[in-house]
Write a protein that binds this DNA or RNA. Structure first.
Ligand SMILES: [Zn+2]
Ligand SMILES: [Zn+2]
Ligand SMILES: [Zn+2]
Ligand SMILES: [Zn+2]
Lengths: 130, 130
DNA sequence: TTATCATTGTTATAATATAACGTTTGTTAT
DNA sequence: ATAACAAACGTTATATTATAACAATGATAA
């Protein structure tokens, strides 16, 4: 059962940076940004990232090894994620489309696999770049 | 226009290993497997992998940083890929489902982005593991 | 031939991520 | 309050994944 989540100090620092960013952030870029706050080691970043992902506060963009804040309030703990990614400017936008989400959540593989989670990444050129 | 592709020596070696494998292979695991064939450096592997991906002969499983051979003859140069991934045994299966593919290929983001490509990864437990 | 282009081999290094260990802090139960 | 436990922390070291840079070779075509 999901309880009201209280963030630890490091988790809050990392989340703030990611939320303020315009695009996806990489772990070491986050690290360099928080060294003034006394966080010095990759482990501290990765631990915070792991927890934030568990909580559904952020998502990992797998094709970029980078992290974005969750912008969709109804995104249930990263079980069903979809993103549009611009191949030119690197912009990433979280897609919350109920139909898409339902379609994929109910998709069942012929070979008898039952899915718990999916991640979908679209690539192309955003409005600005096309 | 796609021409009949001729593979170079290194490309062929790497493809053979990936095709013979039961599951996804990581770049360095491929490297260790081909050192007897005179390939000694990561660059040689990554270069072959890049070309093979371009040709649509293999795909990268982004969430695992690993590579699988393309099993679906109608998979057009990795423009529309979908996989089911077992979180227990690491099995990966390429999904070729025309409906799914059409649905996603025609999916258009509200914000005006036109997609060229997508990659979808489902996670769960395979038949054996559930 | 000469130019051009893909591929190769090689060394070095960058970028991403985890292991392992001990300490500190926060929570819960008595 | 205090003991017990779990979560988070700080730190050092190391593992894993990926690219840069450069020189040599091989294949293709004007
Ligand atoms: Zn989300
Ligand atoms: Zn763009
Ligand atoms: Zn394929
Ligand atoms: Zn399995």
């Amino acid at each position: 059962m999901a309880q009201a989540q209280t963030l630890s100090r490091n988790q809050q620092i990392v989340l703030n940076i990611i939320e303020k960013a315009k695009g996806p952030l990489k772990a070491y870029s986050i690290l360099f940004n928080v060294q003034k706050k006394g966080i010095n080691a990759p482990q501290q970043i990765y631990r915070a990232l792991d927890k934030l992902i568990e909580m559904g506060k952020i998502h990992k963009i797998e094709s970029k090894n980078a992290f974005v804040a969750c912008r969709s309030s109804d995104c249930e703990i990263s079980k069903a994620t979809a993103f549009s990614i611009c191949e030119s400017c690197e912009m990433v936008d979280e897609i919350s489309d109920t139909k898409l989400s339902k379609y994929l959540s109910s998709f069942n593989h012929k070979k008898g696999m039952k899915f718990k989670r999916f991640n979908l990444e679209f690539f192309g050129l955003c409005k600005k770049c096309k």
